[in-house]
Amino acid sequence: MENIKEKLQGLEYSFAKKLIFLLLLKQIIIVFSDLYFVGTRYLFYDVVLILTVTPCYVFTLVSENYNFQKVGKFAVGYLMLLNIIFSILYYKDFPSVISYIFMFPIALTFYYSIRKSIYISTLFFLTIPFSLLYNYYFVDNVDKSDSLYYTFSNTYTVVCAFIFFVVCFYYLMQVQKLKAVLVFLEENSVTIDPFPGLERNEKIRFVQESFLEDIDFPIPFYEDLFSRIEDYMKSQKPWRNPEYNLKQLAKDVNSNTQYVSSAINSCSRNNFKSYLNDFRLNAFITLINNKNEEFSLEDAYLTIGFYNRSTFNRVFKSKFQMTPQEYLSSQSN
Rank of each mutant, 00 (worst) to 15 (best):
K5T: 03
V53Y: 15
E213Q: 13
T122K: 08
E298S: 12
D224A: 03
V62R: 15
Q208H: 11
N313C: 03
K7Y: 05
Y301G: 01
S255H: 00
K7I: 08
S262R: 15
T155N: 09
F125W: 03
S262H: 14
Y78E: 08
N292E: 11
Y111T: 14
L43S: 00
S210Y: 13
V158K: 12
A180I: 10
K203Q: 09
V142I: 14
N289L: 15
N245R: 04
V167W: 06
K179H: 03
R309G: 02
E213C: 04
S87H: 04
S113P: 08
K247H: 10
W239T: 02
K144W: 09
R314E: 07
L81K: 01
I106Y: 00
R269E: 02
S87W: 01
T40D: 04
F206C: 03
V159Q: 11
D93Q: 11
L287R: 14
Y301V: 12
M1H: 14
L25W: 15
E298N: 14
Q174E: 00
E209S: 02
Y222W: 13
Y78D: 02
Y307D: 10
L302R: 14
A75F: 15
Q174L: 01
I85D: 03
L35G: 05
K251F: 06
K179Q: 08
I114Y: 13
M233L: 12
I29Y: 11
N308M: 04
Y150K: 13
Y42D: 04
R269H: 07
T151P: 07
F320S: 03
E230V: 15
I264F: 06
I264A: 08
D216N: 15
Y57C: 05
R41K: 11
I118F: 12
M103W: 12
S145Y: 15
N270V: 00
V158H: 09
I50L: 13
Y134R: 06
E213W: 10
G305C: 07
D93T: 13
S296C: 06
I101Q: 08
T157E: 09
F316T: 06
L287I: 07
A263M: 07
T40R: 11
Q208Y: 09
I204W: 06
F295T: 00
I215A: 08
K291L: 15
L25Q: 10
I229N: 01
P95A: 03
Y45T: 14
D278K: 15
A250P: 04
K17L: 12
